[in-house]
Design a protein around this nucleic acid. Sequence first.
DNA 1: ATCATACCCGACCGATTTACTCAGCTTTCG
DNA 2: CGAAAGCTGAGTAAATCGGTCGGGTATGAT
Lengths: 155, 155
Amino acid sequence: MRLTTRGRYAVTAMLDLALHYDRGPVSLAEIAERQGISQSYLEQLFARLRRNGLVDGLRGPGGGYKLGRPGDAISVADVIDAVNETVDATRCGGQRNCHGEKRCLTHDLWEELSCQIRDFLSNVSLDQLVRRKSVQTLHRMQEPHGKESRPEATV
Amino acid sequence: MRLTTRGRYAVTAMLDLALHYDRGPVSLAEIAERQGISQSYLEQLFARLRRNGLVDGLRGPGGGYKLGRPGDAISVADVIDAVNETVDATRCGGQRNCHGEKRCLTHDLWEELSCQIRDFLSNVSLDQLVRRKSVQTLHRMQEPHGKESRPEATV
DNA sequence: ATCATACCCGACCGATTTACTCAGCTTTCG
DNA sequence: CGAAAGCTGAGTAAATCGGTCGGGTATGAT
């Protein structure tokens, strides 16, 4: 089972994107600063997200990324799957050859666990996260109220 | 979140111990052979299991390990906790300083996930695993029917 | 046109962890 | 005593991770 900073960063970044959905494309530089993530590292993550159709990249000045589909159609599991190769908890990756040719004693247990985790993460969409109170609060705190960073919303 | 081969091995080994509970101490050599795990590696794992009171070691010839308490009082979470330091899914380890001084946007999500996983693993005991049909089947397959390895059960 | 912006891509890197080995101890049974 | 087992610590190859760096390429604005 692999659930590391990579997946966490990816979900955080996607959530940032969802929170600024109405402002047009969001640049990686913005996300990097707001969420405290290395921009170069974000580029790697977004390459994977893009390949999986979770985001669309727009080049040139004023460009950035936007969600590839509505926030209620993107689950946390989708995001983690896109950047990590697997969320499987079994060693054999479901191949059932964890002990020689056969399953190991605990194969089924890990399979169930994987299922549980997957269910949980599949049932949380970006939109649901956006609506959470804790997220809203942090979101407002991250906005620079002082400087005008909303250039005449061209929605 | 860290759920690796170490935890899997530990649970498998503990399950092996539970399956042979009525035979007196089980040596690591037996477990190593039956479950296909390096014996030296098992020694390291059992050092941690012992420190956490999950097993008792008996030295000398005929020695081995036995469960430190009944199989229904040992959960899979106990075992994984003993060999891994943490099963937490948050980056900050619950310290809520994942983004500068504050929580990151997704802190709560990972906290919930950790909770889910912990609940699941806490509610599976070794005894429950022993009673599972799939485990029983594999168990029987692992027993050497040919040679007499049950020395006049001194229960 | 050209320049700045921002996406895009691939190579590289230090640190950490993992799974595992080796060697050498100590305790205890026969 | 001597062999069987637990016990311990040091060491190691490989993998992975988070991250950097340098250089592209598309595109909007001047």
